[in-house]
Write a protein that binds this DNA or RNA. Sequence first.
RNA 1: GUCCCCAUCGUCUAGUCUGGCCUAGGACACCGCCCUUUCAAGGCGGCAACACGGGUUCAAAUCCCGUUGGGGACACCA
Length: 551
Amino acid sequence: MGRACGWTHNLCATMYPSRSHEDSKMIEVRTRFAPSPTGYLHIGGVRTALFNWLFARHHGGRFILRIDDTDRRRNVQEALAPILHGFRWLGLDWDEGPEVEGPAGPYFQSAKLERYNRAVQQLLAAGLAYRDFATPDELQMERDAARARGERFVYSRRWLAGDEDAAARLAAEGRAGVVRLNMPRTGECRFTDLVRGPMVVEWAGEQDHVIQRADGTCLYHLASTVDDHDMRISHVIRAEEHLSNTPRQIFIAQGLGYDLPHYAHLPAVAEPGSRTKLSKRKLQKYLKNPEFARLNHRGQVIAGAMGLATTDETFNPVIVDFYERTGFLPDALVNYLLLLGWALDDHTEFFSREQMVASFSLERVNKAPASFDPVKLMAFQSHYMQSLSVSQRADLAAPFLEGAGLLAKNPTSADKTRLEQVVAAAGERLVVAGDILDYREFFVPDDDLAYDAKAFDKRLRNAPGAVDRLARFAAGLPGAREWDASALEKFLKEFVAVEEIKIGSIIHALRVALTGKGVGFGLYDAMVILGKESCLARVERAMDEARREMP
RNA sequence: GUCCCCAUCGUCUAGUCUGGCCUAGGACACCGCCCUUUCAAGGCGGCAACACGGGUUCAAAUCCCGUUGGGGACACCA
């Protein structure tokens, strides 16, 4: 193990991407993202994947997807599908990995157990790892004792088996043997992080990490290091939580005779309004943040209307699927995520894919955690949504109406026209495509219109004279010759003049009668969309309803 | 507890390496006012930050030291 002491890894400064254009042409840039098949894609993970993808694309390299399934072997295919789907939805294409394969496969760790085992044997043979028979309890006692002394834990190596005889003897006691790294206890590990700069860590602070379990399966650090080498990963770009894992991986890599990749550790994506890493397990806490809760609620309402069976665990704003099902634009989400920990300059906010690929560099990645801000995400979404034409937005909205049973699978051209009218009238109020469900009143039969109880009471039932005014207005309505917004405005204003009333004393009642709601887009637009017949029917029905329960 | 990392408006950030152009710029949010049939949108205006303390220097957001605060890691998880 003496070999390991004081090993240094010096990357020359010219390896920084912006200064290394020539270098990058010589070495093929290969980055990777290695999700566990958990069944969903975490928003923080996507940000990491995005930076890997951008770095590879910027340098004309390759982006690789590898599946870290050493631990759970069940239903990998099933749990993988939503992840691959998420990547495709976001437009993050991978050059090698599941379904596309490639020259450096297999891309599933579960398929490489033999390969890892050979690496373990190599480390064992080189004296860089050892067989160990300590029980978890014994180890824990040593850990506790070190902590009580306020010192860092250093394993006593008491149950280390130096040879086969010792191993047999310890095994005879009923102990299970694992393989541990024989970490150096003097000297320091040096490496350059492309985000953080030069790093120096004392080897003595490192543990004798387990790399292989008693059952022969291997652990993350070993598998990951071997894979990065096998897949010729040039730049390991990952979350900051891995920064302190780096020395042990360097130890493994060097022990195996590998050239080291470059490392870049990205700042964490943090909770809304906090610097704590965003986690999938703390949803209840995030829901106490009003903005996060509002975003979540919006999604839940849309999913509910679509008849999706969702739970907090499977459907929330920490999971990428949430955004697709709510009707977000992938470009908006990606653009927002890009700016979480990276900025080009002091003013550029919006990037096309081409622009972000062209301008991305690790040099401009920040070091401090960036908190996830649902409000700013919505602002990006709104911007991207407004950049689309009415018919594009209508196309995005249609599936939501279909899913809620408000629009036929094959809509008639009249249906389509109505949808476009509603989308146009809604304008910037339609932020995510699922928001179309806020305007369901334009897609339900007149008799099925639901009334907002509060608005109905305020504007019709309890507003003195409202019903009578509505009746007189409706009586004149069939005489309206032109049925467009400006004609209707003139018509209503004439009515107001004749009646000698303020416009507010009829228009609110009319809105509730026609749409069931106290708020909405322009009333004349609403009338045009509904048509004369519907308007009359709805006013009649509202008056009946108001009179029926009047004292 | 130990080790490592980090620190500019409420949030995302520019500026820090290469000290002066910074009475600190932009965006989102927020607060007024205007417009207005509601809700939005729009127009105009506004509030708001260099964590703290020492140095170095003619000059510090920028360099150095310390403090505080925050985060991450200390698994037979990944």
